[in-house]
């Protein structure tokens, strides 16, 4: 599904990724761990096409297509979803309006008719009940004045609405209280199946206890220093990154 070959990436002239290699098959769950500044967020951003990041060399192939040739919206419509570490606020734009635009962009791309307000509310309310999100959520502006937990819940809701193929969770578990954490893991549980893949960027064991990754990669200084089975995460939690080389 995703094939990253010897990838070098710069941001503002600084080389951050120094030769990443990664292969993800359908249905696989990969955890990426590593100290701050090791390039974890850069990887999320470059996969989704953030224009601030520049690919110096190497390839990213998603379902046989070269991602470097696609703009961010094409990648998103193709099925790549990033749950942001710090979701952006969009003042003045209601969540309902935004979610509907998002869902209809996807439907249009897939050749389905766009949803009207009534059908949209039916779908969104169903997803909201799975996540136990109250209805007033829709009337509020996109992420404006949301607590950290609410922002992550909003990401989870979008995830459920779009049902993407490749899901990148960028430290989605950071700063979550227990309730919000449960909601986010419910969303992920709901989406797990044999063809959907996950990249989970995290510092903690907590989320990995719920999602159970097939592989754990340790990212340091811009490349993967170690890959192992899920036990590697537990091991890391005890020993830290110092001993992982």
């Amino acid at each position: 599904m995703l094939y990253i070959n010897n990838l070098y990436v710069k941001i503002h002239g600084n080389l951050i990724l120094n030769g990443i290699n990664l292969k993800i098959k359908p249905g696989e769950i990969h955890a990426i761990m590593g100290p701050n500044g090791s390039g974890k967020s850069t990887l999320s951003n470059v996969l989704t096409g953030n224009p601030n990041y520049e690919i110096v060399s190497g390839d990213i192939i998603f379902e046989g297509r070269n991602l470097a040739l696609q703009n961010p919206e094409e990648r998103a419509l193709g099925g790549i979803f990033l749950a942001f570490q710090y979701p952006t606020e969009i003042p003045g734009v209601s969540n309902a309006y935004f979610l509907k635009a998002m869902l209809n962009a996807k439907r249009k791309f897939c050749g389905f008719p766009e949803l009207d307000a009534i059908d949209f509310f039916k779908i969104v309310k169903e997803k909201m009940s799975i996540l136990k999100i109250e209805e007033s959520f829709l009337q509020r502006n996109v992420n404006e004045g949301f607590s950290g937990g609410e922002k992550k819940k909003n990401e989870a809701l979008q995830l459920l609405l779009l049902e993407p193929k490749l899901i990148i969770l960028d430290e989605t578990d950071s700063g979550l209280d227990i309730d919000s954490f449960k909601i986010v893991s419910t969303a992920i549980d709901n989406l797990k199946n044999t063809f959907r893949s996950f990249i989970i960027v995290t510092h903690y064991q907590r989320l990995l206890n719920c999602i159970l990754p097939n592989f754990v990669h340790i990212l340091q200084n811009g490349y993967i220093v170690k890959t192992g089975p899920r036990d590697l995460a537990a091991e890391l939690e005890k020993t830290g990154y110092e001993n992982s080389n």
Binding site: G49, P51, E73, A76, T88, G92, V93, Y97, M102, A105
Partner: peptide
């Protein structure tokens, strides 16, 4: 970028933001 990551083109993103404003 947030909008584009959700499949909304930059022009539509601008329209959404301006209309909200």
């Amino acid at each position: 970028f947030y909008c584009r990551q959700r499949g909304i083109s930059s022009e539509d993103a601008i329209n959404i933001i301006v209309n909200g404003f």
